[in-house]
Structures are given as C-alpha cells and as structure tokens.
C-alpha cells in the first residue's frame, strides 16, 4: 500500500469509533433495557416519576445557574479591568489569576474546606451556599481566561469611535464592548455550567453530600445498577446537547454581530 497522509488519521478514527461511539451506543442500549436484556422504558419513566431524582435535577440546575451567574459577575470585571489597563505586563497578571488551574482541584478544595470550616463550622448547614462557593472557587479561572482573551483582542478604535460619536462610558460599554465580548462569555459559561451540574465530587468533599445530577450516576455505579446509571448519563447527555446547541447559536450571533460592525 502506498503511503498517504490521509491514512495517518485511520488509527485515531478507529480509536474514536471504539472509545467514543461504541460507549455511547452501549449507554443507549443499557438505558432502555432491564437486567434481563429486554427493552423497557422503566428507567426513563422511573426518572421522571421519582420525586428524589426529579428534585436532584432541579436542584443541580439551580446550583448550575447560580454558580455560572456568580462566576460571570466576578470574572467579567476582572477580565475587563485587566484587558483595558495600560500596563504592559497584563498577560503576566492574568497568569496570576488563572494559575490555580494547574493545581490539582482536590488539593485546592481541601484548602477551601479548611478555611470554610473555620468560618462556618459545620459546612452541611448551608449546602447551597457552599456548593456555589466551592464550584466557583474551582472554576473561576475557566471563566476569566476566555473573557480576557476576547476583550484584549477587541479593536480599541471601535470604542473610541463610539466615544467620538457622543456615547458616554456606560453606553459605549453596553452597546459596543459587551456585545463584542459575547463569544468569550459563551465559552466561559460553557466551561462552568456543565461541570457545575455534574461535578459532584466538590460537594462530596465539602460536606459529604452529593445532591446533584452527576452523583446519581455515582450512586448507581456503586450499586452496580448499570441500567439506571446509563439512563441518568443519557439524560445528562441530552442536557449537554441542548446546551451546546444553544451556546453555538450564541457564538454565531456574536460573530455575526462582530462582522456587521
């Protein structure tokens, strides 16, 4: 066989088929069968009729929304101040803000837990608050970085033009800078929202409770219930697909807005 560059992709393609496609097919199969291998919708109806699983779904959506909002409200001003500042070393300063990304999350959460325990005593008393604080602490750098990147690539002359045409600072921000930074916000939000719904280990470490979507998989896993676990994974996948579709729409409009300007 003659050597051809496109054949180099074959090993990776086979790898993807085996470790990405095949697991998902197995997941779908397990989600819609019972222990005897017969087709059933029980896992699906079971999820939507059980008050506990439904409650977990809504609770983790609430945690994810609040956490994403808090991260955005903290990260945007940080990214904005740094991107707009005149100092030459701002890329180094951003580095200081996102450096914790490279420290193992479990060690960072251990540190946070010690401090929160000192401040609050029993962490299980304020589960929602501590969930938001913990996940924010874990994922804040992932929100800062994309927003900073988008903001620092912005063409400064657009802002100047807006000012020259009589817009005040607030108008310039709301009508020029903010819309142009939407792509950064979108990629930051997608980095935080999904982990906030599924990353139950942060909560588990903080107060030994895991009342969040991802943990349902964990509990089925511990009980060797592959069928129930697969259904939860499938429902999570559906949410992820929906979310990805929504955010890629946002990205396109952001780009279109940029092109129009």
């Amino acid at each position: 066989m003659q050597f051809s560059r496109k054949n180099l992709g074959i090993p990776y393609f086979i790898f993807l088929l085996f470790f990405v496609v095949a697991p998902l097919i197995v997941l779908v199969f397990y989600a819609f069968t019972n222990g005897q291998g017969q087709f059933t919708l029980e896992n699906l109806t079971g999820f939507f009729t059980d008050a506990n699983t439904l409650g977990t779904l809504f609770y983790s959506l609430a945690v994810a929304f609040v956490t994403t909002a808090v991260c955005l409200l903290l990260a945007y001003p940080i990214a904005y101040i740094l991107a707009m500042s005149e100092i030459k070393t701002k890329s180094v300063i951003v580095m200081v803000f996102v450096l914790p990304m490279w420290i193992n999350f479990s060690l960072r959460i251990t540190a946070l837990k010690e401090v929160l325990t000192l401040l609050e005593g029993n962490l299980a008393r304020y589960p929602f608050l501590n969930a938001v604080v913990g996940i924010t602490y874990d994922f804040l750098p992932f929100m800062i970085l994309p927003i900073f990147t988008t903001l620092s690539k912005l063409d400064g002359s657009l802002r100047e033009a807006a000012m020259d045409l009589g817009a005040d600072k607030v108008q310039t921000f709301l009508q020029v800078t903010l819309p142009l930074s939407v792509p950064g916000i979108v990629s930051g939000v997608s980095m935080v929202f999904l982990p906030a719904m599924t990353n139950y280990v942060v909560l588990d470490m903080l107060y030994n409770s895991t009342y969040i979507m991802g943990s349902l998989i964990g509990s089925y896993f511990s009980a060797y219930n592959w069928h129930g676990g697969s259904m939860i994974a499938l429902i999570l996948l559906a949410i992820i697909c929906l979310f990805t579709l929504l955010t890629s729409d946002g990205e396109e409009t952001g780009e279109r807005g940029g092109a129009l300007l």
Binding site: G9, L16, L194, M197, W226, I240
Partner: peptide, 24 residues
C-alpha cells in the same frame, strides 16, 4: 466526521465519559 467525533469528549461531562467507557 473525525472533527465532530473529536468534539464529543470535549463537550461531554467527565462523569458520562468515564461511566460509558467503564460500561463498554
């Protein structure tokens, strides 16, 4: 096709990736 398959583990939650590979 390769690029879109490549995107699946990127957007997927780690819990789901880990669990599905474990099952397979």
């Amino acid at each position: 096709l390769i690029s879109s398959l490549n995107q699946v583990p990127v957007v997927n939650a780690d819990v789901v990736t880990g669990f599905s590979i474990c099952i397979l």
